[in-house]
């Protein structure tokens, strides 16, 4: 009677299975290694490399590789760039992650409600979304930060408030598409409530583009923070990569290194986060598993 084809696959917990898939994805693994290295360095770097990032320790604009004590040189005030990178990483990453989290929470909630319920709910939420979308994001964030005095939290919130519309639209589009599929009707037919259908049936299936979008948002948030700091709207009491670039930008023609190294740090962080996002997307897609 029974069909006899399905390959015998051992049962594993979903997380374990996802990890097994992730491990096979070389670029994603590389991303994880790079990001881990960056996070570890910003968390524990100061144990091995002493020095305050704000202290003036040497002559200004010492090029990298000349003095063994300051391997990446010094900036326009004579501050150590390695110390800056190690201290500035933490706030940069924290702001990026917090801003991405805020973006995702607002965007997914509103997008899901709009896509799922449709009708006037959708109309209202989408008009609000459009209102936020047509605001010039950077200017609006600048206004928010200026109004509430720059601190890591206000910066994260400002970035979150200006970036959620895209996530909301993406979530809405996914919900609109998935809610028409039969397995959603099937969930309704067995008596599932709307909340369950939204968060436990549709959302996991909408996850792949959202995970990718979330990782990209981390990247955008880090760049946003750098932009605000670059414009002098960062928290001046907290060292961050953006602040380093912003402070040194005027002297870029005389000294490339004080801007380039934090720039590279931002680049590698954003890059590794994107690689991990792609890997997660593949790992959580059961259809790719048996390949």
């Amino acid at each position: 009677m029974s069909d006899r084809t399905a390959a015998q696959v051992r049962a594993e917990s979903p997380a374990r299975e996802a990890w097994r898939m992730f491990r096979r994805n070389i670029p994603a693994l590389a991303g994880l290694v790079i990001l881990s290295a960056i996070v570890l360095a910003t968390l524990y770097g100061s144990f091995f490399y002493s020095g305050d990032a704000f202290d003036i320790v040497w002559a200004p604009h010492e090029p990298p590789g000349v003095t063994a004590e300051f391997p990446l040189g010094t900036d326009y005030l004579g501050r150590d760039i390695v110390a800056g990178l190690l201290t500035g990483g933490g706030p940069t990453l924290a702001v990026g992650a917090a801003a991405a989290a805020i973006t995702m929470v607002i965007g997914i909630t509103l997008g899901a409600l709009a896509g799922f319920f449709g009708g006037w709910v959708d109309n209202l939420l989408m008009r609000i979304t459009e209102f936020f979308q047509v605001l010039p994001a950077l200017l609006f964030a600048m206004v928010l930060v200026t109004l509430f005095s720059p601190s890591l939290w206000t910066i994260a919130i400002a970035i979150g408030v200006v970036s959620w519309p895209q996530t909301a639209r993406l979530t809405r589009a996914e919900f609109l598409k998935i809610k028409e599929l039969e397995y959603v009707t099937a969930a309704r037919a067995i008596g599932a409530r709307n909340g369950r259908i939204m968060w436990q049936v549709i959302l996991p299936n909408a996850a792949p583009p959202l995970i990718v979008s979330a990782t990209l948002t981390v990247g955008v948030a880090i760049l946003f923070e750098a932009g605000l700091s670059f414009l002098g709207l960062g928290d001046p009491n907290v060292m961050s990569w953006g602040l380093m670039i912003g402070a040194n930008r005027e002297y870029i023609l005389d000294a490339w290194w004080p801007v380039t190294f934090p720039g590279l740090a931002i680049f590698f962080t954003v890059f590794s986060v994107s690689l991990i996002g792609d890997g997660l997307n593949d790992a959580f897609n059961p259809k790719l598993r048996s390949r």
């Binding site: 039969e182 397995y183 009707t185 037919a189 008596g191 409530r193 996991p204 959580f284 059961p286």
Partner: peptide, 22 residues
Amino acid sequence: MRMRRRDIQLIFQDPYSSLNPR
């Protein structure tokens, strides 16, 4: 109606799209 659904169940046409792939 939700409570009544236990008495009335549904089988779909497309065995590919009627099961949650995740």
